[in-house]
Simulated assay, not measured.
Amino acid sequence: MEETFFMIKPDGVRRGLIGKVLERIERRGFRIERLELRSSVSQTLIDQHYESLVEQPFYPAIRDFMMSGPLVVGILSGESAIASWRQMMGATRPEEALPGTIRGDFAQAAPLGQTIQNIVHGSDSVESAAREIALWFEKEH
């Protein structure tokens, strides 16, 4: 069994999509090992999560979006959980996400110049899953 980190971003929470996302996770046969609603997150935590993007000129908009409201974080497990969850999420850009994926069915394309709001996040490798799980669940923030 493999574990991965997942997140329902502020746009997903704001639009009332938590139940729909969790239903898809469970329907796929994954087990939800941990689940928390975070009413707010610190800038430090967001900066650590997106450490590879912090120096990019577009990053402040991502930080502001991720701190704009509550979000849901969790750990799911199952066979090939990382790859399967990423497939379920769909392409990063909502306009490229296929119907049937979470982003394809629920995310809305961002107007030119605005931050992509794509409902969900998932770790992209075993290493990033371990790092993100430790960051969000094993440290006090």
Rank of each mutant, 00 (worst) to 15 (best):
E2S: 08
F6M: 14
F6Y: 14
I8C: 08
I8D: 07
I8H: 06
I8W: 04
K9D: 07
P10L: 08
P10C: 02
P10I: 02
D11W: 02
G16R: 10
L17Q: 04
V21Q: 07
E23G: 08
R24F: 06
R24S: 05
I25E: 08
E26R: 07
E26K: 06
R27Q: 13
G29W: 04
G29S: 00
R31I: 15
R31Q: 13
E33T: 00
E33R: 15
R34H: 09
R34E: 08
L35D: 05
L37M: 15
L37Y: 14
V41R: 14
S42N: 03
S42H: 09
T44E: 14
L45V: 15
I46S: 01
I46R: 06
D47E: 14
H49L: 07
H49Q: 13
E51G: 13
E51P: 04
E55T: 10
E55D: 11
P57S: 14
F58H: 10
P60Y: 06
P60F: 09
A61T: 08
I62F: 15
D64I: 07
M67E: 09
S68N: 11
G69Q: 07
P70C: 04
P70D: 04
G74V: 06
G74S: 02
L76N: 10
L76E: 08
L76S: 09
G78P: 13
G78N: 09
S80T: 12
I82V: 06
I82T: 01
S84W: 09
R86S: 08
R86A: 05
G90L: 01
A91I: 00
T92D: 09
T92R: 14
P94H: 11
E95G: 10
E96R: 13
E96S: 10
A97W: 03
P99Y: 09
G100H: 01
T101W: 01
G104M: 06
G104D: 01
D105A: 01
A107C: 03
A109M: 02
A110T: 02
L112G: 05
L112W: 02
G113S: 07
Q114C: 01
Q114S: 13
I116L: 09
I116E: 08
I116S: 08
I116Q: 12
Q117G: 02
I119V: 15
V120I: 09
H121E: 04
G122T: 03
G122W: 05
G122M: 12
D124A: 15
S125F: 01
V126R: 12
A129K: 03
A130I: 05
I133A: 00
A134Y: 00
W136R: 07
F137Q: 00
F137T: 00
E140M: 12
